[in-house]
Design a binder for these strands. Structure first.
Lengths: 359, 359
DNA sequence: GTCCACGCCGAAAACGATTACAGCTCCCCG
DNA sequence: CGGGGAGCTGTAATCGTTTTCGGCGTGGAC
C-alpha cells in the first residue's frame, strides 16, 4: 500500500524545502518561478493535503457536530438538512450524533468535545437540565449552540421556538371558525414542550373568553398510538367537543384515526390542529392544519450562530427566537379540498390576541 | 483561554516521562506505582486525549462518512439511523454529506477522501456512473461501500436491493386479489430504479400470463405531484384499470390523491401498491400497501461491510443483496381496516412466480 | 567600495500523541 | 562477586503541516 505524497515528497521533487512548498500551497507571496515548480510537482504527484495534520497544527478541524435525540423524528431531519447546507457553504463538515434520548449519551457527547475533533456543537434538545449538563455546556472547550429551552440566564447561544404563540395562533384560528369546545391532547407535562403547551392552552382560553374545563384535557405522549389512546379517552369523556388542539402532528394523526373509526367527520364535526408541520401533516387525510414551529429555520439559525461565534469567540451569548406560523389545511376546513394545500404561511400574528410580545 | 492538559502536563505533574504516561493511558504493562501516579495526575488535570494528534500518528480517524443524495428522503433517513447505530457501537463517528443529487459534488466527496479525514465511506447512490466516478471509487485511498447499483464486476463492496423481486411480489399479490388490468406509474427510465422496475413489471405480466399494454404505463418522476400528474394521465387513457403499481410511495400518494378526487374507491375500484415502505405509507389514508426494499437493513449491511474491511483490507470485494418484502395494508384491501397495519413482513417469496433465484 | 534594506528561501520548532530502542536497576544464578 | 536476564523508564524519532527566524544574495544609495 503506497502512502500518498506529502509536502516532503513535493519538496524533493521540486528541489525546494517543505517551507517553500507550504507557502506556495497557502498562497503566501513567493517568487514566480518557485510557485510554478511547486505547482507542477504537486500536480504530477496528485498531492492532497492531509487534513488531520493540518488540524493538529491549526487547532481547527472544520468539523461541527450536531447531537440530536432521534434521527427518525422528521423535525430533526429538517434541521439536519438546513444545518448541513449552511455548514457546507462555509467549508465545514457535519458530524451526526444521535443520542436516542439517553441523557447519559448526551453527557458523553459533551465530554467528547474535549477530544477536540470538532470545532463546535449544536445540540437539540438539551434533555438533561441538571446542573452537570448545564455546566458541561457552558464549560465546554468549544462553542455550543443549544436548540430548545435552557434555564433562564444560561450563558450560551440559544435558538428557541415559541410554542406558546403557536398554540395561541391555532386556538385563535379554531375560535374564528366558531369552535367553542376545544380539547387538548398533550404530551407529558414533565417535558418542556408539554408544560409550555398546557400553559398556552389555558392562556388562550382565557384570552378568548372560554372557560377552562379539565375534562377537555388529556395527557399522553408525542406518538401516534399514545395520541390515539388519549383521543379515545377524551372523546369518551367529552363527546360534545368540536375541536382538538394536538401537541404534535403524530398525536393529531392518532386522533384522526380515532375520529375516523368513530365515524366523526373532520373537520365538520371535529376540527383538528397538529403541531410541528412535518411532512406527515400534508400527507394525512384529511390533510392536517398544523402549527409550524420553524424547525428548518431553527437549524439555519443555529448553524449561523455557531459560525459567527467561531469567527469571533468574544461575542456575548445570543438568543434567537423563531416565530411560529399556522399552516391551514383541510382538517380545520380552512384549507383547499385536496391535500395539495397551499403552503403559504398563514402569518396571522397572534398579537391582537396575545396582547404584546410577551415571550 | 487556557489550553487543555496534554500528556506533557501530566508527565510534569507526575514527575515522569511522556512515554510512561502514554503507556499507562494505553494500558501497557507498567509498574503499579507509576500507574497510580499517572492516573492521579490525569484525574486531577481532567485530561482528555487529543484525538487529532492520535489520528495523525495512528493514521486512523475513527470517522466514517456517509454521502447521500437527499437527506429529506425518508429512505435515507432510515439508512442514516442504522448506520449511525452500527458505527457508534464500533467506536466510529459518522460524518454526513448530502450531495443534493449533484454528481459534481459526489466527485468532490470522493476526492475529499484523500484528505484522510475519514477511514471509510458509504455512498448511496452512486449517481455518476461515468468512468471517472467508478475510477474514483475503486482508487480511493480508503475503503468505500456503495449502496445501490454499480456496473457489473466493479471491484467494490456493494449493497443492493432487489426491486425486481419486489415488483414481482407486489404484482403477484395484486394478481392474487383478482386484479387483471394493472397499471404502472414509474419514475424516469433513465434512472436505474426506473429501468429495473419497468423491466420487472413486464416480466411479471408475462409470468402471470397477462398481456403487456403500453397504455397501462406512465412515466413521471419519484415525487408526489409528478405522480399525481402521471396518475391523471393514465386514468384518462385507461379508465378501466383495477390496480396501480407505483414505483415509489410518493408516486402512490399522488395517485391516491387523484383517485380520491375522481371518486374512485381504494381498494374496491382500484388497488394501489407503493414502494420503499416509508413512514408515509402507514400514515396515508387508506394506508398504503408497499414493497419494502429493506433500507434499514441495507444501512446496517453497508456499515458492517465497511467495518469488516477496515479490520481486514485484504478481503475480496463482497456484494450483499437485501431481500424485499411486502407490507400489506389497506390500499389493496388485504390489510386491517385502520392504518395500524400489521408490520409483520409478508415474506411471500416470489419463487413459485419467478421460477428460481435469478437475481 | 561599503553598508543597509529587502526579498526569498531553508532549517527547525512547534502541534500532541505513539513507539522503537537504549539504558538503568535489581535480582538471581553460576 | 560478576554476568545476564527481566522489568521499567526515558530519549528521541515519527506522523504531515504551519510558521518563526535567521541567512543569503541582490540591488540601490552614499
Amino acid at each position: 500500500m503506497t502512502e500518498g505524497p506529502t509536502i516532503t515528497t513535493i519538496a524533493q521533487r521540486a528541489g525546494l524545502s517543505i517551507a517553500s512548498v507550504s507557502r506556495v500551497l497557502n498562497g503566501l507571496p513567493t517568487r514566480e518561478d518557485t510557485v510554478r515548480r511547486v505547482m507542477r510537482a504537486a500536480d504530477e504527484l496528485g498531492y492532497v493535503p492531509n487534513s488531520v495534520a493540518r488540524s493538529l497544527r491549526n487547532r481547527r478541524t472544520h468539523q461541527i457536530a450536531f447531537a440530536l435525540s432521534d434521527i427518525g423524528n422528521p423535525v430533526y431531519v429538517a434541521m439536519v438538512r438546513e444545518i448541513q447546507a449552511v455548514l457546507k457553504a462555509a467549508g465545514y463538515r457535519l458530524l451526526l450524533h444521535s443520542t436516542e434520548g439517553d441523557p447519559e449519551d448526551e453527557v458523553c457527547v459533551l465530554r467528547g468535545l474535549r477530544e477536540r475533533y470538532v470545532d463546535g456543537l449544536i445540540i437539540s434538545p438539551l434533555r438533561g437540565v441538571g446542573a452537570e449538563h448545564i455546566e458541561a455546556v457552558t464549560t465546554a472547550r468549544v462553542p455550543v449552540v443549544v436548540v430548545g429551552p435552557v434555564p433562564e440566564g444560561t450563558p450560551v447561544d440559544n435558538v428557541r421556538g415559541d410554542s406558546r404563540t403557536g398554540v395561541l395562533l391555532a386556538m385563535n384560528h379554531l375560535h374564528g371558525l366558531g369552535r367553542r369546545r376545544i380539547g387538548l391532547l398533550n404530551g407529558p407535562l414533565g417535558t418542556a414542550p408539554g408544560a409550555a403547551r398546557a400553559a398556552a392552552y389555558r392562556e388562550a382560553l382565557e384570552l378568548l373568553g372560554l372557560p377552562y374545563d379539565e375534562n377537555l384535557v388529556e395527557v399522553g405522549d408525542f406518538t401516534r398510538d399514545r395520541g390515539a389512546r388519549a383521543a379515545r379517552a377524551l372523546l369518551a369523556r367529552a363527546p360534545g367537543l368540536d375541536a382538538l388542539m394536538c401537541a404534535s402532528d403524530l398525536i393529531a394523526l392518532g386522533a384522526l384515526d380515532v375520529l375516523r373509526e368513530q365515524g366523526r367527520d373532520v373537520p365538520r364535526d371535529v376540527a383538528v390542529v397538529g403541531m410541528d408541520d412535518t411532512d406527515l401533516a400534508s400527507v394525512a387525510w384529511p390533510s392536517l392544519t398544523s402549527v409550524s414551529l420553524g424547525w428548518a429555520e431553527r437549524g439555519r439559525a443555529a448553524a449561523r450562530l455557531l459560525l459567527d461565534r467561531l469567527r469571533d469567540g468574544s461575542l456575548p451569548p445570543r438568543v434567537v427566537t423563531v416565530e411560529p406560523g399556522l399552516m391551514v389545511r383541510c382538517s380545520t376546513g380552512g384549507g383547499p379540498a385536496t391535500a395539495f394545500a397551499t403552503r403559504a404561511r398563514a402569518r396571522v400574528r397572534a398579537l391582537a390576541l396575545a396582547g404584546g410580545d410577551r415571550p
